[in-house]
């Protein structure tokens, strides 16, 4: 997706899009249903590039990693796809797109959330924290340090989700024992099999952070 989408409405992208067929666009079917007849008519006559864009996106106000943003997003866009494709915050990973693997875990208002199962438009007014927002400048979050120290990853692809989940796991009070951690981290799959090391990292942070 064009990166400039993040701060302004998409301009006419190419000739194909200018020929868009309004009535075929699923995202606006509901909109059409409630739209004034003139708008639907305008669409039928292919008059509506701008109207179309307006219907396709809706502004959403949210705070991402401490920065307030207003974004035009398509109602069908997941928070995950908006983060990755619109904002280039690719630290949040897509592993399955069905909420089965946990790679896309972010914090919304401090709670862990699967961003692939959350529509971006539903985050109005909320605070989203991604892996990119954890470190304070050069100073890593204790969980990030603990993952490095205990080698809680190999390929690194599930890692952002594991870290976001691990932090939430402690905040939820679900990190009181190794068994507890394993149970409440089981929504985060690691195919490389770094599980025992991830558990060690979470235990260490729970018990007071780095002891190196």
């Amino acid at each position: 997706m064009d990166k400039n989408k993040s701060n302004k409405k998409p301009e006419k992208e190419d000739h194909q899009e200018s020929r868009r067929d309004f009535l075929k666009a699923s995202s606006i079917l509901t909109a059409i249903a409630v739209a004034p007849a003139t708008v639907a008519k305008a669409a039928e006559y292919n008059l509506g590039e701008k109207i179309s864009a307006a219907f396709e996106t809706t502004p959403v106000n949210l705070t991402i990693n401490g920065v307030k943003k207003q974004l035009p997003v398509e109602p069908r866009s997941t928070l995950l796809d908006v983060l990755r494709e619109q904002l280039d915050l690719t630290g949040t990973k897509k592993g399955c797109d069905y909420g089965q693997c946990g790679a896309c875990t972010v914090h919304v208002n401090g709670q862990r959330v699967l961003s692939c199962l959350s529509l971006a438009v539903m985050q109005e007014g909320k605070e989203v924290t991604t892996i990119e927002g954890l470190a304070k400048g050069d100073e890593l979050h204790p969980m990030q340090k603990a993952f490095i120290k205990h080698d809680g990853f190999q390929c690194g692809y599930c890692t952002p989700g594991q870290i976001m989940s691990g932090i939430a796991c402690i905040n939820e009070g679900h990190a009181n024992s190794k068994e507890d951690i394993k149970e409440f981290m089981s929504g985060n799959i690691c195919r490389c099999g770094a599980y025992p090391n991830i558990v060690k990292a979470i235990q260490e942070v729970k018990n007071g952070g780095q002891k190196s």
């Binding site: 630290g91 892996i131 990119e132 954890l134």
Partner: peptide
């Protein structure tokens, strides 16, 4: 490459 992997970079 640990730092790159734990920061999403």
């Amino acid at each position: 490459d640990g730092r790159l992997k734990v920061t999403g970079a």
